[in-house]
Design a protein around this nucleic acid. Structure first.
Lengths: 388, 388
DNA sequence: AACGATTTCGGCACCGTTCCCGATTTGAAT
DNA sequence: ATTCAAATCGGGAACGGTGCCGAAATCGTT
């Protein structure tokens, strides 16, 4: 039987909703609402982490200084319209009280999160890791936080993380598409909300989405040209997923180099790699088991090239003399594998900084018009896998 | 001369602060405040990105449904205390209006950010990349965002990012210390605020900071024991920075294995690696140039071991037969280098999941007591660099 | 039908800032 | 001293939710 904790009546007590999981009661005699105090020993411990200390707010500063919170806010942010003395006093008091501004309150009223989202397809190869490092540094210099997400080369993951980033109200997005992504409709929500999205590296040709990328065509062309100049003639290709622009451009570079030097273009020497680790091995095998295999291969990226080196070595094929190989992206393993892998280096740092600067420009001035495409130079890194 | 835009007087006009960068004026005749409309053509374009569409709020939903916003809030979150019908109606309307909850408003009032910070010293080796991937997945399953920062092995960077994370009001921190970090005082602010911090991998023995790490001692012991069993006798060591627990533990494992098998412990066979890329090469050189070099080396991590392999190969030393090498951490390069590197694999996945689960438990219940130390098993990955 | 028990809802104050509006203080010139 | 321009500040309404309090509506019982 429940007893009213005020008038101590036992009849006329009705349940009235719940509070923080506890049953609430109502006494009709004294018209009083109450919950039963649990008799557990830790009843004085607040259930949530309310125990954490109170953070100093601008109101605390204002109180101590006997000024208004508007003035404090001004002192903390607007350099103008404030007496330098007041300003210093506020700054000193803020320091003294360990004042830390509340991003949530600020972001709520300013409708800006001061954070940008970066979505990458993977973090295994070091291209994206390095990209993130540079991008994060550049962003934080401008006072922006970076939220990093990865799609794991999966379209539905990509949609999920973008949804989360949208809910998080990032001010902009840097996106490198997953190998599965075929449509950009999941980006409409950002377009509608006026949140700028820049595609990088793994892009798609769609109007309205600016792109920052390496010169994949030129890089591939240079890689294949390098093979040709080193005396290889039957040059094959491990291509990437057909829906990625990167695959198409690198393929075009490969093909055009063959055309320029009037070499045989043999579809039998081309296999396609879906970017999954298992598939890399299979691609290498398929290529090497051809009745008349190529004497050189340009691979769409280093993982494919590396697996090709491994497979070739296992079959006793001497990589270099018997099989020239050129990769793309300068993976950390490419320097260490034997023979070391000739590859195309991407301007990661430049790419990351360009992305951030373009994005921040757009964020800070919606009238800023983003260049549709920014293409950055690649460099041929000559190593041993392409020497006869 | 300024003219009042209301009474059109030209005298008695005084400056009165600024608004959004524009000068504000005050007319004493009609007691009216105003700013001058710029005559630029785009004067109707709001300066900030106000042009972005209005996001639907719970108030919009409430208005359409003619119910109160409390009810909407309840329907959206509390499963209890709400009529299923109302709830469904709200959910449907939310869908229809493309309602996205505002994290900032929610976090502001609930004093929780629903995000955790992960601070790692680097992102070049793939240990931390993989850790992040797993951790992020586990966190997002629980509805938490992850903010990733890296210190670049630099103490002052580490302090900076932690300060940023604190201002960001993360609900918890996962931290792997930089190689320079000697004190944990920069974590006091989190302790004071009741924000749990869990150290992982790169830890320090300090009361109050729970740790999650691989069994470095055991892993090192097993690695050295493996070398001994393979016939190596003069076993050297490339140690890590002395202030890291990880270095000490791996060193202890190395030493104790020597002791157990009654082998010579020769300080001349030990060099110390500060984790910087350049230093790795120098360590390898120093070790190989000793008058009586060791016949095997246990390295504190794979980068050191890899550089040792490279240096040894350059000097014509046959790695394996002449020089046994065991690394630690199973870097992606270790499988590919020739000879492939025997190394100690860390339970990355388990470590990441343990970290997240412990942290979330603590966040959700401040009374949850975190285990001071969680140690996870390592595995010896035998490859060719340790075979005679 | 009348009453009490339950469920469900509306109102409102708050979270910590920003920013607009108006007022007050200051300073310089009559 | 008086006047008026300029500099500086205070008050208060948002921002979009959450959750407490009290009340109304609904339900079951006698």
């Amino acid at each position: 039987m429940i007893k009213c904790i005020k008038c101590e009546e036992v009849s006329g007590i009705a349940k009235a909703g719940q509070i923080r999981g506890k049953q609430r009661y109502h006494c009709k005699h004294c018209n009083y609402y109450f919950t039963l105090q649990s008799s557990s020993p830790d009843s004085n411990v607040p259930p949530s982490s309310r125990s954490s200390k109170h953070h100093a707010t601008i109101l605390d500063i204002a109180g101590k200084l006997k000024i208004s919170k508007s003035t404090v806010s001004r002192a903390l942010r607007n350099s103008k319209e404030i007496n330098p003395e007041t300003r210093n006093a506020v700054l000193k008091m803020a320091q003294k009280l360990n004042y830390v501004p509340n991003y949530f309150a600020s972001s709520l009223v300013r409708r800006k999160s001061y954070s940008i989202g970066i979505v990458v397809p993977e973090l295994i190869t070091n291209f994206f890791s390095q990209f993130i490092i540079i991008a994060q540094k550049a962003a934080s210099l401008a006072g922006y936080e970076v939220v990093i997400c990865h799609s794991n080369e999966n379209y539905s993951n990509e949609m999920d993380v973008l949804k989360r980033l949208f809910a998080y109200q990032v001010d902009g997005i840097l996106l490198s598409l997953s190998s599965e992504t075929k449509s950009l409709e999941h980006l409409n929500v950002f377009q509608d909300a006026g949140v700028p999205v820049i595609l990088f590296n793994r892009v798609k040709n769609r109007p309205g989405f600016p792109k920052v990328l390496a010169d994949d065509y030129q890089g591939a062309f240079a890689g294949v040209e390098h093979l040709i100049k080193n005396g290889y003639r039957k040059i094959g290709h491990i291509g990437g997923p057909g829906n990625l622009q990167i695959s198409k451009d690198r393929f075009r570079g490969y093909r055009d180099a063959l055309i320029k030097y009037e070499l045989e273009f043999n579809p039998n020497w081309i296999v396609y790699y879906d970017l999954s680790p298992l598939n890399a091995k299979k691609c290498a095998q398929t290529l090497l088991e051809k009745p008349t295999p190529p004497d050189a291969v340009f691979a769409v990226n280093d993982p494919a090239a590396i697996h090709l080196i491994i497979e070739a070595k296992q079959r006793g094929i001497r990589v270099g003399p018997e099989l020239g190989i050129v990769g793309f992206s300068n993976d950390s393993r490419s320097e260490v594998i034997e023979p070391s892998l000739t590859t195309i280096g991407q301007p990661i740092e430049q790419m990351a900084e360009t992305c951030i600067h373009l994005l921040l420009n757009k964020i800070n001035d919606s009238r800023f018009s983003l260049p549709a495409t920014t293409i950055l130079k690649t460099t041929l890194i000559e190593r041993c896998s392409s020497k006869k």
